[in-house]
Design a protein around this nucleic acid. Structure first.
Lengths: 256, 256
DNA sequence: AGGTGTGAAACTCTTCACAGCA
DNA sequence: TGCTGTGAAGAGTTTCACACCT
């Protein structure tokens, strides 16, 4: 890793594993659906199925949060929704700005999944003066010149970058300088940020490339398997099938 | 683990770890940039920096592909581009269909990153009859009724779902029935697919929730730290900062 | 010298399997 | 009885550190 020294002696055991954190939103989504159907309790087995994980993993994940279940019964849906929301920090309001209002930025602005969690789109920002003032998803687009003012006035700490790759680092620098400490990056570039700033990235073409890898392997195996196993083509077999591998791992910190 | 493997003692040692596969596109992007600047060779250190990983990891990753470097020198850029492309299956053409042409679907259709890899948008499909015939990114949108025909005529094995959550499973079923074996899902739902079909998902709000978790933790630590360490506010401290955790892990299989 | 390739150690995450409580 | 909570085993991933080649 970069410089660091690793272990943090102190900071106590608030240690929820990253892998667990990444699944909490999944559980939350499943729980919200149950809540809307007024289901009072769920077993780890049922909830795991709804979230698409196995029950042992789910129970282990929840064990990091505390003992919120009842043996012999299961989990109280409403209570769990609250606990997970709190753990994820969704009980507070998070103003976010979206920079780069092309198709993707517009899609993000219109995406209902944000508002339903604690996220509020505080502003849309674009470098194109022609966009300024035009409303997208009911929010008027503002010019990049206003970026710093917007961040400060709204106390924004989370920024979404949906600009072309070429503009991303520059936008990122300005966001960070203005006080943003978490960035969700859709531009296909590695962003360099100072220590203390989190970056997560979503790269559409990377996901497709991973699929292509597996797709190619299937084709190869298929050809190779001709004859080795006489039991029909696809066969039934194990559930589980498609786990999404360790995907991510975005370093985000870049040593000059 | 995606679908397939597992069983089958045979299939020989073509085993590239998932974590490595997930990083190959990152390396490829960095290498492509170097290639465009006509850089002939790179060291693991330089390339790692450009891709945002550390050099030991990069060398280990490449070691799974073979010994493509030269000790004391580094890696030949063009050669590596080719080897990685081949490994990912990008030396062949992958026709893909995008289903659901809202803002997000349109963004995907317009995304240049696809064509520049081996992906070709074979068709855009939407359920809204009013969209039919209208061109998006130069490609006319076709109605959902045509889905099966399009898949078959074009030999499509990769499908992208950008529909609302409610329609996703149905679309998924039709894609699979028509022969698609890899799906990239943008709808916030767990998709149920038969064995042998890969699903990767991208959920915008999940990424934001993970950022919120860390953001909240930062705020907490900051408050808690007041006084414990006299050296200025933010301090240097842990480098580490922004690794994108084990993010993914999409189960994709959903019972009932 | 300079930088790759790689065993081995360290760490993280997942799965097992069962004790223990409602 | 039924299902949670969890120690322990197992699998996968990252990092170390150095032998080895150019």
């Amino acid at each position: 890793m970069a410089t660091g020294r690793t272990h943090r002696p102190a900071t106590r055991s608030r240690g929820i594993p990253e892998a667990t954190v990444a699944r909490l939103p999944l559980y939350l989504r499943a729980l919200t659906a149950l809540s809307e159907r007024s289901v009072p309790t769920v077993s780890s087995e049922e909830l795991a199925a709804a979230a698409g994980v196995n029950s042992a993993k789910l129970r282990k994940d929840f064990s990091y949060l505390g003992s919120y279940g009842t043996r012999g019964v299961g989990y109280d849906v409403e209570y769990l929704v609250y606990q997970i929301s709190r753990e994820l920090g969704l009980t507070q309001d998070w103003p976010v700005v979206i920079v780069g209002i092309g198709n993707l930025g517009a899609a993000l602005a219109n995406y209902g999944g944000f508002a339903s969690r604690g996220f509020r789109v505080a502003a849309l920002i674009d470098a194109d003066p022609a966009m300024a003032g035009r409303p997208v998803a009911g929010i008027p687009v503002q010019h990049t010149d206003e970026l710093e003012k917007i961040i400060e006035d709204n106390g924004v700490s989370i920024g979404v970058i949906a600009t072309p790759a070429g503009a991303a680092q520059q936008v990122c620098d300005r966001l960070v300088a203005a006080g943003v400490t978490s960035i969700l990056n859709f531009a296909p570039t590695v962003l360099s940020v100072p220590d203390g700033v989190d970056v997560r990235k979503v790269d559409l073409s990377i996901e497709l490339q991973i699929l292509a890898f597996h797709e190619q392997r299937k084709a190869g195996e298929e050809a190779e398997a001709a004859g080795s196993d006489g039991s029909g083509p696809v066969a039934a077999a194990r559930q589980e099938s498609a786990e999404q591998g360790p995907d991510g791992d975005v370093p985000a910190v870049m040593p000059a």
